[in-house]
C-alpha cells in the first residue's frame, strides 16, 4: 500500500507540474501584457498621460521584461515557496488577499455538492438496478437524460425562481445581508448552510444524473454475477446480500470518478455562480477573465485544477482500499 501510495503521489506531482505550465501559457495568451493593462487600469481617467517609457518602467519593476521561462519559475516558485500568487491589478492588492477565504467557500460548495450527489445517486442507482425494467427505473432513465441535457444555468434560474417564491427573496447568494461582511461566527456558518443547499442542488443535478446511470449499470452487472447467486444459495438475507456483495462493488466506479465529478462541478461553477450570485472562486474567475486580470484567473484556474488532481489521487487511494485486487495489480 505504501508503494502504491508513493507511486500515485509522484504521478500527482508530475501532473500538477504540467498543469501549472499549461495554466501559465493560458495566462500569457491575451494580447498585450500585464504592464499595459496595469497602466491603463491605474491611470485611465486620472488625466495622467502615460508614455511608453512609463509602461516600460512598470514592466521592469514587475519583472515582466524577463524571458518567459524565467517568469514561469518566478510565478510557480512564489506559489510553491511563499504561497504568493502575485499582484491582482484590478483590486490593487495581492491575489492571495483577493482569493482569501473564497477558497473555503468554494470548498464548502464543492463538498456539500459531492455529498449530496453521492447520497442521492448511489441508493437510487442501486434501487433502479434491482427494480430493473420497472416504471421507476424507466422514470429514472428519463430523468437522467433530462438531467444531462438541461443547461445548469437554466436549472439555476428555475430553482432560484421557485426558491424565491417558496422561501422568500433572500435565497440567492451565499449569505444573508447581515452576515455578508460580518466576521466568521457560528451564526454566519449556519446562515451559509441555509444558502448552500441551492447551489449544491443545482451543481449536483447533472452529476446525479450521470452517476445514477453508472451505479445502475455496474449494479446490474454485479447482480448477475455468480458470487451473488452463490451467496443467495447459502441463505444470506436478501437485504444484507445486496449491500454486502453487489452494492459494495457498484460504488467502485463512483469512487473512481470522484475527480471527474469535481471537474464537472468546477466547470459549471462560474456559470451557476453568475445566476445564483455566489461570491466564490468561480464567480471571481469569470470576473477576472472579463477584466483580463490574468494573475487572479491563473491562480484560480491553478487552484481548481490542483484540487481536481488531488481528488483524483484521493480517489485512487480510496479505490485501492475498497478493492483489494487493485493494489496487487490483479
Amino acid at each position: 500500500m505504501l508503494r502504491f501510495t508513493l507511486e500515485r503521489f509522484a504521478g500527482m506531482v508530475v501532473t500538477m507540474l504540467l498543469v501549472s505550465v499549461m495554466v501559465f501559457l493560458i495566462m500569457e495568451i491575451p494580447p498585450g501584457d500585464y504592464a499595459d493593462r496595469y497602466a491603463f487600469r491605474k491611470y485611465s481617467g486620472t488625466g495622467v498621460n502615460v508614455t511608453e517609457a512609463d509602461i516600460e518602467a512598470i514592466r521592469r519593476d514587475l519583472g515582466l521584461d524577463k524571458p518567459m521561462l524565467l517568469r514561469y519559475f518566478d510565478w510557480i516558485g512564489g506559489i510553491v515557496l511563499r504561497g504568493d500568487f502575485g499582484q491582482a491589478f484590478a483590486f490593487e492588492t495581492s491575489v492571495t488577499k483577493v482569493i482569501g477565504d473564497k477558497v473555503w467557500l468554494t470548498a464548502g460548495i464543492l463538498f456539500s455538492t459531492l455529498l449530496l450527489t453521492y447520497l442521492v445517486s448511489i441508493p437510487i442507482g442501486i434501487y433502479a438496478a434491482v427494480r430493473r425494467g420497472s416504471a421507476v427505473d424507466y422514470g429514472l432513465t428519463v430523468f437522467s437524460y433530462l438531467g444531462l441535457a438541461l443547461p445548469n444555468f437554466l436549472l439555476a434560474l428555475v430553482m432560484l425562481y421557485f426558491a424565491n417564491r417558496w422561501f422568500g427573496a433572500d435565497i440567492g447568494g451565499l449569505f444573508s445581508d447581515q452576515y455578508r461582511d460580518a466576521p466568521w461566527s457560528l451564526a454566519k456558518a449556519w446562515d451559509m448552510a441555509k444558502h448552500l443547499w441551492l447551489p449544491a442542488v443545482v451543481l449536483a443535478w447533472s452529476a446525479v444524473a450521470y452517476q445514477i446511470q453508472t451505479v445502475r449499470a455496474t449494479m446490474s452487472d454485479e447482480l448477475n454475477k455468480l458470487s451473488v447467486t452463490a451467496a443467495r444459495a447459502r441463505g444470506v438475507p436478501e437485504m444484507k446480500l445486496l449491500v454486502k456483495y453487489p452494492a459494495r462493488l457498484a460504488i467502485n466506479p463512483v469512487v473512481s470518478t470522484i475527480g471527474f465529478d469535481v471537474n464537472r462541478i468546477f466547470s459549471e461553477l462560474p456559470i451557476v455562480a453568475v445566476v445564483l450570485g455566489l461570491t466564490e472562486l468561480g464567480e471571481l474567475l469569470l470576473r477576472a477573465y472579463l477584466d483580463l486580470d490574468m494573475n487572479v484567473a491563473g491562480a484560480i484556474l491553478l487552484l481548481l485544477t490542483f484540487a481536481i488532481v488531488f481528488m483524483n489521487f484521493v480517489s485512487d487511494l480510496l479505490l485501492a482500499w475498497l478493492d483489494p485486487r487493485i493494489k496487487l495489480g490483479v
Binding site: L18, V19, G282, L285, Y289, L290, N312
Partner: peptide, 24 residues
C-alpha cells in the same frame, strides 16, 4: 498520454473561458 491527461484534468468551461477571454 501525459499531455492528454493534463488537458482532461483542467475543468473545461473555465479553460474555454480563459481562451475566449483572450479574444480581442
Amino acid at each position: 498520454q501525459r499531455v492528454t491527461e493534463v488537458i482532461r484534468v483542467v475543468p473545461i468551461i473555465p479553460l474555454y473561458m480563459g481562451l475566449a477571454a483572450a479574444m480581442p
